[in-house]
Design a protein around this nucleic acid. Structure first.
Length: 357
DNA sequence: AAAGAAGTCAACCGCGAAACA
DNA sequence: GTGTTTCGCGGTTGACTTCTT
């Protein structure tokens, strides 16, 4: 079965790209588009394999790429989508404006993974490393986890369908406007429906029964709030919006930030005023508009055994909730965690344009 | 100031899937 | 139906930079 022989040719340049090469590649793609990566290098006068050209274009030269530091919201998005999708960087990238899968992957490996591990969260499973959370939550938690895992599979399938439709849509556009790719990418058609809606429409027009064989989730209506994992149908969300997401951020000092997610319930369950004062004593509190996003780490981060070095601002006694309440709140927090993910994925905010390749 | 360690990120590699002949 | 080509993805590498001692 065919492996591309293009990179095995002797004499092709490897390694870092020079500005001259970049210029050649850019000029060629702006003029002709990139119909075939294999044929492109020779046509563009480059001593590179097509694969290398494609990579350079997708990860660096594409005009719709945002470079520089990841925002806090982007970090949250990555973490939560990673919890849902795993190492599917291209799928994650479709939800992050102007970021490439390679960049996201690098950022995860160099920053986020370490940070989660430092906070006592397994970056692979997104659970507390010592497992106390799930052990104490017991069977109920296991059931929630199982059903959410099922939902994750559906979301995964949805993303794949999105990607496929995006590709098809792109091919149609390419067919109607054979070149000038640059113009396409810098000025995407305003009326282009989002991939989510493409999927919705496709599924609905095909009258596909989207009901999961084992779940009660249904798929009715035509707006984003009715996506398969609509937060209003998936789980009870009343509490998720009341979450307070506190971040202890050192960003202003140019250092890595650390987060804490704290549910209001738990805040009230703690030492009231004393706790609030303690909060104020922390370097900085931050309450983003999308407080429900990212609420789910609450349990892990409030679990005393997992506080580690993020706990300086916390009174040890603030973990002294009685067992019953702790069990209930852990269960709820587990839900909140996934609710955060689903609400983000299904957010009314239009998803990004699919990457232009 | 120098050397080694650690971090970062662009680029490469190999695989699987889709498209094509 | 089968083989070949092309593309895209995720894992990994290694050059370069920054930090620490």
């Amino acid at each position: 079965m065919g492996r591309s022989p293009c990179c095995e040719k002797i004499g092709l340049k490897k390694g870092p790209w020079t500005p001259e090469e970049d210029q050649k590649l850019l000029a060629y793609i702006e003029e002709h588009g990139h119909g075939s990566w294999r044929a492109l290098p020779s046509k563009a006068g480059l001593q590179r394999c097509g694969k290398s050209c494609r990579l350079r274009w997708t990860n660096y030269l594409r005009p719709d790429i945002k470079r520089g530091k990841f925002s806090l919201q982007e970090e949250q998005t990555i973490i939560q989508l990673h919890a849902l999708l795993g190492n599917r960087w291209s799928a994650i990238a479709t939800h992050l404006p102007k970021r490439t899968d390679n960049e996201i992957k690098n950022y995860w490996n160099t920053h986020l993974k370490k940070r989660l591990a430092k906070m006592g969260i397994d970056p692979v499973t997104h659970k507390a490393i010592n497992g106390t959370l799930n052990n104490t939550a017991g069977d109920k938690s296991a059931k929630v986890t199982a059903s959410l895992s099922h939902m994750a599979q559906w979301e995964s399938a949805r993303l794949e369908a999105e990607a496929r439709l995006a590709r098809e849509s792109k091919m149609r556009i390419a067919a109607s406007t054979p070149s000038k790719l640059h113009a396409q990418s810098t000025n995407p058609p305003a009326s282009t429906p989002s991939p989510c809606f493409d999927v919705l429409n496709a599924w609905q027009s095909a009258k596909i029964d989207l009901e999961s064989p084992t779940s009660t989730l249904t798929f009715a209506g035509s707006n984003a709030s009715m996506l398969p994992f609509s937060t209003t149908t998936a789980l009870e969300l009343s509490e998720s919006n009341s979450n307070v997401w506190q971040q202890r951020s050192d960003e202003l000092e140019g250092e890595e930030s650390e987060w804490k997610f704290v549910s209001k319930q738990q805040l009230q369950g703690m030492h009231g005023k004393e706790t609030e004062e303690h909060f104020i004593g922390c370097e900085e509190s931050w309450f983003p508009g999308t407080a429900n996003i990212g609420a789910g780490f609450t349990g892990m981060l409030l679990d005393g055994s997992n506080m580690h070095d993020t706990s300086e601002c916390w009174d040890e006694s603030s973990n002294g909730q009685d067992e019953q309440r702790s069990q209930v709140s852990e269960d709820a927090e587990n839900k909140n965690y996934w609710n955060g993910i689903f609400s983000m994925v299904n957010s009314e905010q239009p998803p990004l344009q699919p990457p232009l390749l």
